[in-house]
Design a protein around this nucleic acid. Structure first.
Lengths: 187, 187
DNA sequence: CATGAACCTGAACTCCGGTTCCGAATGTAA
DNA sequence: TTACATTCGGAACCGGAGTTCAGGTTCATG
């Protein structure tokens, strides 16, 4: 498949990291609205260098998203450590949402439609999904989540919360409503 | 304030409607991704004509959104007619979401950040909010909605559902979870 | 019917941002 | 230290999409 490919030159490897860091910070702040020139400037490099390391803007964005998914997986693993199934679930849910809140690019990527460039991130995504599924299952088995709750529902409530990340503490309220339901005592 | 301004010429008034219809259909289908040339073509007019009636693309979009809000207000009024507070609420909620589902432009407008061009739509928006508030209040007073539920929560759950309008029946499931909560029987 | 204002057309213009490209610079191996 | 492949820099390029405008057309009025 892939050629033997000799390792990157020292400076190249260093620059690659620099680009990733600069892009990560800017994308997190303003989503994909940031332009290549800005990233280059922030990284202290020329635009040409960005294109040496990434085919195009989408590829760069995809790389960043991939990174985030890895971080999310780590977070989910940590949550899965805790004994109590419900605590594990809550830890995952809130940890995930708090992270997402700080990253506009990740948010848009998750809310928007599937991009073709997401393809080579499938692995990272799958890893995260697997752990999520396990945590959800534990909570269901312990009857702390409704019996028909599944991993896809996690995505649903997660997206719902993300859509409410414009104003102040809106998304937390949204999660609260989700946890307890919106009905009143009267049947 | 506004000049006396003589009425539009007959053909101009007709064309204005044509533009609004064409733009409405296209925006509903593909959001603001449609381009001015497409709208002109669909309307069977030149691009220049669009600009005779609307300052720029944003203004045109705003006009369309305004129209939708009026339709939503009508829908809400109808819902407010029904006796039972809960039925009224459900009618509003589902009616609103079904309409929104069919209109990408409206959806993006509601999910995205406030645009400056939304200013001259404030009235239509306010009308809708007023009726919504009344319906919500009735349901709360009848204890069919939790006591701390307010109009802003309606916006929250509405946005949550909209964020889940990509796949099949996802948003309905999301609303179900919202209605009943996601917890299981175990405390 | 004549006159002029309002209106329409659509090719051309402009701006913006992603992408390219080649000479210069730098790292690496002999 | 020399030689060369790799990498970098950033001005120039390019295509796409909103907007303009000069000239022709249509409606309304006397």
């Amino acid at each position: 498949m892939t050629a033997p490919e000799r390792p990157l030159r020292a400076d190249a490897r260093r620059n690659r990291e620099t680009v990733l860091d600069a892009a990560g910070a800017l994308f997190a702040q303003r989503g994909d609205a940031v332009q290549m020139d800005e990233i280059a400037e922030r990284a202290g490099l020329g635009v040409g260098t960005l294109y040496r390391h990434f085919a195009d803007k989408q590829a760069l964005l995809a790389a960043i998203i991939g990174r985030r998914f890895e971080a999310m997986t780590a977070l989910a693993c940590a949550a899965d450590e805790t004994e109590d199934p419900w605590t594990a679930f809550e830890t995952l849910l809130y940890g995930y949402l708090e992270s997402v809140q700080a990253d506009a690019a990740f948010r848009f990527a998750l809310l928007g439609p599937e991009e073709p460039s997401w393809n080579d991130i499938a692995a990272e995504k799958a890893d995260f999904s697997a752990i999520t599924e396990s945590i959800v299952q534990r909570a269901v088995d312990a009857s702390r989540l409704r019996a028909d709750f599944d991993a896809h529902d996690f995505v649903l409530i997660t997206r719902g919360a993300m859509a409410n990340m414009t104003g102040a503490g809106d998304w937390r309220r949204h999660v609260t409503l989700l946890l307890d339901g919106i009905r009143g005592p009267e049947r």
